[in-house]
Design a protein around this nucleic acid. Structure first.
Lengths: 174, 174, 174, 174
DNA sequence: TTTT
DNA sequence: TTTT
């Protein structure tokens, strides 16, 4: 059935990148999406939407986005439940992104830090066009450094990511 | 910022209609949206998405939709938190519908019950076109029977609704 | 960049199915989408949106939809130009569907004709879940009858389709 | 019926602002939306989508956006026809924006010109929250300067706009 | 706690 | 050139 979500907002924190036991990348982040209207106290509130993205775009998110980055998400809504710490079932609704777009148009991110001249233009990470044979590593293990951009950052907020940890492959959207 | 959701699915239960202390109608329902793909066990799962709709479309939802109805929702994602029964903060993400479309194309609803020849054609309840002066009761108290369709159903699943209960007007989207 | 369209409407005519020289299926159809509001003469107008869909979902559209069918489209907007019959360049905007959903919930289509008990449930044709190895014929030549449903219609509106004709592969979205 | 479009792209030219005989503002612009995939020649193409926006957001578009601005549009698809210069009917499909979001995150627009420190944060122009009594001038004549931002630009690309010209009010979406 |  |  039809299920489509489009969001533009800012990351509330650096994204988190994990790998399933099968080596499939998955990134999670929360988007703060400012509302278009004010509440009865005259304040502009925001909605905080949890997002998940798999495979290659997950690695791109980890490499290019960080706290404060302006990003667009095109995906679908997913409901999921898990055992809470008190043994009760917890139900969550989150967005599974098909593609994530980096919307920072100038050099620095929101905090003003400089990052050189790459990515002057918004850039999209998705799986629109990489279906089928053009992307033979799809679904496979992370193939060395292929997802890394060809530059170095002085402080890599994701230096600790990359090692397979315990995420179930059952969460895979396909 | 941008925040748009479009869903098509079936109501898991009859919708619930409430009124704020100020007399503003609000309906809630859950949409079961079948996924377009199968999981690793070959089963087609569904996502269960909570939806909220305000004012006139809320009354239309209560009057025209019930458990099993096929409906389309056009709205936005909202995050909200409340005090749980154990005193802990609970965070939820739900869809605030701008408009709801009834997509049942034939006479009966999902359970096959007959309802005459009205509504042979999908019908949209929204606030697209009723902005401003054409809709002077907008935001006002429920004006008697005005939201009721001109027919009777043998079993009205919403016979118990209509009386103002304790819902905060703070949840109003505008 | 972000580009997302979601429509629900009725086919104005039977869809047309063609094949590129490379044997890739492409279906075209027009969706009449009724507006949610009335014009100044009190009439409900409609928008007529041209849609294109490729590969397997194209064959499903041809097999399951016809004039009057209620359908949902999830896709993107595309602009294209071609040489008009008077030698002038013609610019068109159309929707390239990623997936098409059949929303006819009861047996017959809009004209009331019976088609048996299949498809009692809305059904989605898309390329969400059929990426990669599960769908080895993706992008290949039409594999005989595999896309045909297991029933016969008295008048098959697509009896004349199936033979490769002159459509450029350049129009392929990927 | 359902009809939703979300786009992010750059204005191909400065927007054009007009007024209907009844004094209702309408702005038109074209968005270049880069595709997420490359064509068979390895080039990234773009789609050029014509957009229309009415009333207050139209004036905001005229005041804040110009050629090269990165903008998001949330709206619906509309088909329209008019008499061509050769007497033939021309059919067009365009997007009627409910809201337009300015996504330029840094001071300058695409061409690098400085515009001070306003609008450091993306800003949305829409009619989400201004329905009903809060916006009494809705649908009325342009009320002097009220739509103008409180700053001066050296070259105002819209200095020639503001005078009522011949646009039919029949094109109004509601 | 889920719909067909 | 439009659907129910």
């Amino acid at each position: 059935m039809m299920n489509r979500v489009v969001l533009v907002g800012r990351l509330t924190k650096d994204p988190e990148l994990r790998y399933t036991p099968n080596g499939i990348a998955v990134a999670t982040f929360t988007l703060a999406v400012n509302r278009a209207f004010s509440n009865q106290q005259g304040e502009r509130e925001a909605d905080f939407i949890n997002c998940v993205v798999w495979r290659k775009p997950a690695e791109n998110v980890a490499n290019f986005l960080k706290k404060g980055s302006l990003a667009g998400v095109d995906g679908r809504l997913q409901s999921r439940s898990y055992e809470g710490q008190d043994g009760k079932r917890v139900y969550v609704t989150e967005v599974v992104a098909d593609s994530v777009q980096f919307l920072e148009t100038r050099s620095g991110a929101a905090n003003g830090e400089q990052r050189g001249s790459f990515n002057q233009q918004p850039q999209s990470f998705g799986n629109y066009g990489n279906q089928g044979p053009q992307n033979p590593s799809y679904g496979g293990a992370p193939a060395g450094n292929q997802g890394k951009p060809n530059f170095q950052r002085n402080d890599d907020p994701f230096a600790n990511v990359g090692q397979p940890i315990d995420i179930s492959d059952d969460d895979l959207p396909f």
